[in-house]
């Protein structure tokens, strides 16, 4: 069941918000939003358009310094994966399956897990 839509402004309510995965683990911030037309076609001025994906990482660089990277290559999180919008954007999926989180995974596997104690749970007793 749906009720009336919630009206939001992208910059005010979405951009630069924290993205959390389904377990509440931080994934990224919303660096940009990709717009698409119906059926995933290129969005066109004046014609129906919707948010297709949250862009992360390199999108921040282009927003900070200008320039343009091919949108198709940017790490993205499909808008379909978004579950809730509050003070953060909460996904309905786990971050472990997200390509957008590859840097974290790389640092984790190549560096941090290799230091003794890297998997130690600080909240555990031992």
């Amino acid at each position: 069941m749906t009720h009336g839509p919630r009206i939001v402004d992208a910059r005010l309510h979405l951009l630069s918000r924290q993205v959390l995965d389904v377990d509440g683990e931080p994934v990224s911030t919303v660096d940009d939003l990709e717009l698409r037309g119906p059926d995933g076609s290129e969005a066109r001025a004046g014609q129906e358009a919707h948010v297709a994906a949250i862009l992360v990482g390199p999108a921040l660089v282009t927003r900070l310094f200008g320039g343009r990277a091919p949108t198709s290559r940017m790490p993205r999180i499909a808008w379909d994966d978004v579950g809730h919008l509050g003070t953060a954007v909460e996904l309905a999926v786990s971050s472990d399956g997200l390509d957008a989180d590859w840097v974290e995974h790389w640092v984790r596997e190549r560096l941090v897990e290799r230091i003794p104690g890297g998997r130690h749970d600080p909240e555990g007793d031992r």
């Binding site: 974290e104 984790r108 560096l111 749970d121 600080p122």
Partner: peptide
Amino acid sequence: KFRRPARAAR
């Protein structure tokens, strides 16, 4: 710090 270091690698 409440996460395992590997879960907050960066």
